[in-house]
């Protein structure tokens, strides 16, 4: 079996990487292959880059069942300082996403509430507890003036 595996790998590399890519790029079929392979290998890297500001957003990174998925966040919403029940404003599926700490979703929820209740202070206080027993706190600002967590 190993000899056969070796033969296939030799076939994969026989043209050399540059010639292989060039050969692929010369037809539209090959360009599709390049797009899928290069994109597939490269896209998940974004999660591990320092620029990726939301550790809870594991989309497109193939991090199924990861430790981060186990984070539990408590999302408190206030309107002019008074607690606001998110379940009366958003479908429970959105609240669940907020409880998973998804920054982008929370920021859009804030934007939605600011538009719905103009001239008010809307705050999201996000406290996340991780599997290693550490706790992080995010937000707490008026999202109508600082629309980011």
């Amino acid at each position: 079996m190993l000899r056969r595996v070796n033969r296939v790998l030799q076939r994969l590399l026989e043209l050399g990487p540059v010639a292989h890519v060039r050969a692929l790029a010369s037809s539209w079929h090959g360009r599709v292959i390049l797009l899928v392979v290069v994109g597939g290998l490269a896209l998940p890297i974004h999660y591990y880059m320092p620029a990726h500001r939301d550790p809870h957003d594991e989309r497109y990174a193939w991090r199924m069942f990861s430790p981060m998925r186990m984070a539990k966040c408590d999302a408190k919403v206030t309107k002019n300082g008074a607690p606001l029940d998110p379940y009366t404003e958003f479908h429970e599926a959105w609240v669940t996403l907020a409880k998973r700490g998804r920054f982008h979703v929370i920021e859009r929820m804030g934007e939605h509430l600011c538009a719905k209740y103009p001239h008010t202070d809307i705050t999201f206080d996000l406290t996340c507890k991780y599997l290693d027993d550490t706790t992080e706190h995010y937000g707490g600002f008026n999202m109508c003036t600082v629309p980011y967590l």
């Binding site: 991090r63 990861s66 430790p67 599997l131 290693d132």
Partner: peptide, 26 residues
Amino acid sequence: LVQLGIMYLWAAISKMDPLWLDGRTL
């Protein structure tokens, strides 16, 4: 099949984490 391989590779990389390896996440 290559796409499946890429998925398995990244799934494995995401598990190279002490919190996975010590069995807590599982």
